[in-house]
Design a protein around this nucleic acid. Structure first.
Lengths: 329, 329
DNA sequence: TTGAAAGCGTTACCAA
DNA sequence: TTGGTAACGCTTTCAA
């Protein structure tokens, strides 16, 4: 790899001048500039980011912390972040924290040690103390916060919407699946649904689920039908769980949506490929990722006067695990 | 952030001595070592990886290049790589190349500029010239190569298995979905299936698909049933496409597996949650990721005498989109 | 408009 | 067993 010295020698100037033209600051004569550009091209020179980073104490790396990329919701988020960052020539160090504090701390450490210029965290601890003395911009993604900038979808509203659509469609004995207690967004949607159900005076039961892992989803689906066999409406904590419930219901010979209606949460890509296609509450995951990236970049650039807590809307995606409602003219 | 100088001052020794105890090389007296350890703890000192990397020309970062993390196969691969690397204190810079050469080159550039210590690439160009003058260990993942170390599953055998299971189960008019031509692994499984079908003298048709994106899968499913409505067996290019085919078949009122049998490829987590659960050829994605990581580490450590091209087995996962076969005693 | 040199935090060589 | 110092590749200040 050619270094700035090689370029300087090739162009017959000093490294300082090369550096100046590289960074477009300070004076440099048009002719010398051309000389240098030629040398750069000839040697195929690319600046060493590590050396830059050491001097400036700032790299072009962003730390992205995720709970678990195997949950199909997160690749969407991650792509949103990456695409936005990629366009601005930032790159990502990605870590999966698995909701384990030690891993989260490990990665935050790594981020610091590598001079990342900012962090986007989509983990979901209630405890945010490890982000406190970071002296780095941090954006929380898929998570609310009053102390930190954040990008999230309206979970309460999402929960309300889910419940409302089920009520509108005539569900009388609803079962809710409550996601992990430590995941705030899961609690929000759950709480929103409860609020709506209580307000509408509709009967409901709750199944507690404490992970979002694929393997467990089937277990809860089975539990649901054992405990509450006469359920006529399921509000799932996410689409993966909804898929498992749909699966189990069909296995038991229930007609969907005639006997049982199901609504998911997230709108992961596979939901439309289920059969019947899954009705769900869509979170704009990809866009959330992009917004978080934009927000972080503003923070990095020290811009002023913009909204630091961005809430994105959720939407009911009507497919076929819920009944059609008649339009009244 | 405390630096090595601060530690040296605190312990009353030189930075050289601190460095020596940090890296466990050269002599350092037990007492001084203790002094230094205490200082490190007191100041909560963590070495600056950037400075280390600059001097050594080697970081603790690995570059991981993926086609598109939104395809559910890749998060599994990625987690395999990450988990193995995390245990050995390596971290990942991840890039999605979207099968675009320019992006791939961008990321390779980034990897070099950040002194990554090795690269794992799961992209699928036939052209590998950009990996040629890298002077870095490279492992290809989910891809064969005779010039480079690689970890992959046996696609030919997978294709053969898929076809054989369909034949065994009485399919007479099979339709194959052929994945993108530039994706070698997709071609392998396709070719394997064709070989077996030809050998068994079974009729088949082919639908050409040129991406693995979710949005397109539905399109091909529709095309399949328009062109070949009397198909009684579908060999899909991956599980996402298989899900779309299953979806469309059920929509058209076909009985699965009575009227139509379907076999997928990959065994992504959601396949078992489909209804009926999808029969498929499993690639051990997570394990492939781990193996690639292990292989890269061996290369990095300059170990000798190990297999550089690792082929992992595929397996038929019998679920319910294929018929049961009678056991003959 | 240009160049010399200091400095970013670390490691490794050499001398003490 | 320890410390001084050059070096890694770059940016920035200061002087010319």
């Amino acid at each position: 790899m050619a270094t700035i010295k090689d370029v300087a020698k090739e162009a017959g100037v000093s490294v300082a001048t090369v550096s100046r033209t590289l960074n477009d600051n300070g004076y440099v004569h048009e002719d010398t500039r051309k000389l240098i550009k030629d040398a750069i091209k000839k040697l195929n020179y690319k600046p060493n980011e590590v050396a830059r980073s050491l001097y400036k104490k700032k790299s072009r790396l962003i730390g992205l912390l995720l709970p678990d990329i195997r949950n199909p919701f997160f690749p969407e988020l991650a792509r949103g972040v990456e695409d936005e960052m990629q366009e601005r020539d930032f790159r990502l160090i990605i870590g999966n924290a698995d909701e384990k504090k030690s891993k989260e701390l490990d990665y935050i450490q790594t981020f610091k040690q590598n001079n990342v210029i900012g962090i986007i965290s989509a983990t979901n601890h209630t405890d945010i103390s490890h982000y406190e003395n970071l002296s780095l911009p941090v954006v929380f993604l898929d998570r609310t916060s009053d102390k930190y900038p954040s990008v999230y979808a309206d979970g309460l509203e999402g929960g309300r919407k889910a419940a409302k659509e089920m009520i509108t469609r005539g569900c009388k004995r609803i079962t809710l699946l409550r996601g992990p207690i430590e995941v705030q967004t899961a609690q929000d949607r759950f709480q929103g649904a409860i609020d709506m159900l209580v307000k509408a005076n509709v009967n409901f039961n709750v199944i507690i689920t404490d992970s979002f892992a694929f393997g467990d989803a089937e277990k809860w689906a089975k539990e649901l039908f054992e405990k509450y066999p006469d359920t006529d409406g399921v509000i799932a904590s996410n689409d993966v769980v909804a898929a498992a419930v749909l699966h189990e219901a069909l296995r038991q010979g229930k007609a969907i949506p005639a006997d049982l209606q199901i609504i998911g949460y997230d709108d992961i890509p596979l939901s439309r490929l289920l059969f019947p296609p899954l009705s769900t509450i869509k979170q704009p995951a990809y866009e959330m990722g992009r917004e978080a990236a934009k927000l972080l970049i503003r923070l990095i650039n020290n811009e002023k006067g913009f909204e630091k807590n961005i809430q994105l809307p959720v939407a009911f995606i009507e497919r076929q695990t819920t009944r059609k409602v008649e339009e009244h003219g």
